[in-house]
Design a protein around this nucleic acid. Sequence first.
RNA 1: GCCGGAGUGGCGGAAUAGGAAGACGCGGCGGACUCAAAAUCCGCUUCCGUUAAAGCGGAGUGAGGGUUCGAGUCCCUCCUCCGGCACCA
Length: 859
Amino acid sequence: MEREYIIREIEKKWQKYWEEIDLYKTKITPANKYYVLEMFPYTSGELHMGHLKNYVIGDVVARVRIMEGFDILHPIGWDAFGLPAENAAIKHGIHPRIWTYKNIENFRNTFRMIGLSYDWDKELATCDPDYYKWTEWLFLLLYRRGLAYRKDDFVNWCPSCKTVLANEQVIDGKCERCKTPVLKKELEQWFFKITTYADRLIDDLELLRGRWPDNILKQQENWIGRSYGTKIIFKYEKDGSELPVFTTRADTLFGVTFITVAPEHELVKMLISDSPYANRLVEYVKESIQKSDVEREFAQREKSGVFTGLYAIHPLNGERIPIWIGDYVLAHYGTGVVMGVPAHDQRDFEFAKKNGLPVKVVIKPVDGELNVDDMSGAFEEYGIMVNSERFTGMPSESGITEIQKELEGRGLGGKAVSYKLRDWLISRQRYWGAPIPMIHCPHCGIVPVPEEDLPVVLPEHIKDFKPKGRSPLEDVEDWISVECPKCGGRAKRDPDTMDTFVDSSWYFLRYIDPKNDRAIFDSEKVNQWMPVDQYIGGVEHATKHLIYARFIQKVLYDEGLVNVSEPFENLFTQGLVHKSFFYCSHCGEVVQDEEVLGEVHLKCGNRIEVLTEMMSKSRGNIVAVAPFVEEHGADVARITILFAGPAEKDMLWADSGVEGAKRFLLRVLRFYESNAGRVHGVKINVDPGALKGEEKDLYIKLQQTIKSVREDSSEFHFNTAIARMMEFLNDLYGFKKEDSPVLVKSCIDFAVLLAPFAPHIAEEIWHMMGFNETIFYERYPEYDEKYIHFEEVEIPVQVNGKVRGRIKIMKGAGKEVAFRQALQDDRVKSYIEGNSVQNVVYVQDRLLNIVIKSMGGNS
RNA sequence: GCCGGAGUGGCGGAAUAGGAAGACGCGGCGGACUCAAAAUCCGCUUCCGUUAAAGCGGAGUGAGGGUUCGAGUCCCUCCUCCGGCACCA
């Protein structure tokens, strides 16, 4: 108990000291820059171990780099706009601003308790007008470049949050925040034209290969979803207008027996007015648009649709093709219209069967025939074209290019690319976000707020934050009403605020120049520090933040404001922190430890379950950082997190891990309490050539430890780095020659090695040894290549692949020596006697394997 | 369904240009210290069999096959779990 108290005192002492000597202050002109960045936190609730992991990893990286002589930039800030602030306002009647700044203070205090190596002069908050002024400015930049536009479209609408959502914020057809199934709603909204950058966003992933985790690269590639295919124009029979479709299988063009249009498609209105079955169509369209994607998906496989009674003309054979409307067609992919080839596309096959449409075979397997009557599903593989006029006999691959050429020649289509990625919907019907700096004037239309009028500041006084399906700002009369900057007439501000992902897609640039009030940042400064050398954060941002930030960076690059087109040179994604908790499925609730006796829920008498999930407030399985640090200390928290397992994998928080971490650190302290006195504040060198016996062994062990710790931590294998240090500490405890200079050298190097992992304890033992400056001015130890191996190695001797003995030989000894040595071993000898040696496999310094064959007769 | 990743002691996890499986830690067992306990320090700890013990023998990295003198690691088939995407034409 007493010792834990000491740990906390030590930590406070050195945190104060570091602050006094400005240890983390960023150099204005870096000689050897290294930008370490952790994804900034959304400031809600209480900082827990799940959050902390991210920052501890970043801190180790930063401290290693400091000690390697880099000039580092290591900032922190707050992602502070967003819905929970409004919910707090509704629930507790606190203004979102007050609630947010209180949270920020809370987070800041907790971060300071942990002794993270941030330069606090760089701190920023996205909800600060000094910051969101430039978020607004960024919007205007995109507008000027034609990348921000308004569009009337069917957008994702969360009926519970009463706001629109970007595609990326819809998970399994549900709102990512409240899990309510998302509906379609036709609204005019602001979009960022990220699709313009689709190719670059995919192609530049190559620049990141090997530096970003493969699964993130893959996820982005899939999300952008580029696919090469063919555009084919069918003509509307009535007036010859164009009905383009996108397909990857142009080789099946002669198998088209219908075309299907998505119910949301803009052409639908025209089709309805021309259709003899208008009423039926109206009803169908209304029904399917009202359905959520979840319902549509549920109704799946039963592919519904209605015939319009209208026809299109096939571009190559001139046939009349019936036009259908069906909700299995995605409005937002390709052209929103598909050609129905039931013989060679499973979805079309099902649609055709359901609606009695003909199936026409135009591809046959390379070695076989295909008979319509035997088909129970579509034949989707590549094969040989049949029933396809002059293309008959061509294999699919060349058929596709030939048909493309033919279509191009006739002006009826050709090669085309399609993407899954959609433009980024950034309007939100919310209060707590950066205002969209646009004005709607009845005379001039949409007019941007002049730059000199920025920021458009959020009004303080709002009557009601309750979601109504439109922005609460709309009702703030003195805010929403404004003079048109162009004609001076009465106009209205855009009432919506921006998606908070806009705030976070440029914050890493603002850190470099956070107080600039004349520009979003000084390009010269930014170019000195960018790109971020090491970015650290959670996988969950793979297709959101990490795509948006890359997009914005490219826009700024095109504008000439930054000189790198990828913001994050290296990315590390850490795993989640899980913790077990009790759950009663009978009551359907999380159960506190004290409500459990044995395995029974005291309240209802039913058996409880033990669930393990990611730390979250709603599950009540969080370990809050502040009280933990008060009780155990910051370094204990750090080692617990880092030692629990590989940083990129999910970890299970367990109290036993805390005990181990604490024991290790106290063991370090205890060792130095009795040995630091030997050092006298002088860095000594030893002549390894003169060493022998125990001293030489320790020296070699030290070199090995330095090597492993350096290599492991550069690969984010902090768990094994710590294991190596524990091992070395065990060696130190076992070392008996107390007056040895090697022991002094070991004490010094070990402290420095430990410093990035347990900075407070390391600083303490450093000063215990008589040094007066901070340990972080030290260079991280280098190892001596010549003394990385012991002179003698013990290797296993196998007989037929089974270990039967061990021999000690000099390192680098040859096969003959090893074999002779092995034959001295009684046990090995007993296995070989009476048999003939067929082969001897020798791997230098590793192993000897003697392959024998029984002579027969004896067993 | 498609695309990723993973399956190793009682537990968290080590070890991959193929070469001693289980580093390090937790837990457990034993010893020292103590009036005693805690803490600490020192040992032992994959499983089965055998032995008074040291030891010896066998099995063993999700399952089954294969390549190899030798496979946790490479190849084939399958199972389970986690993550992402999901009518993407």
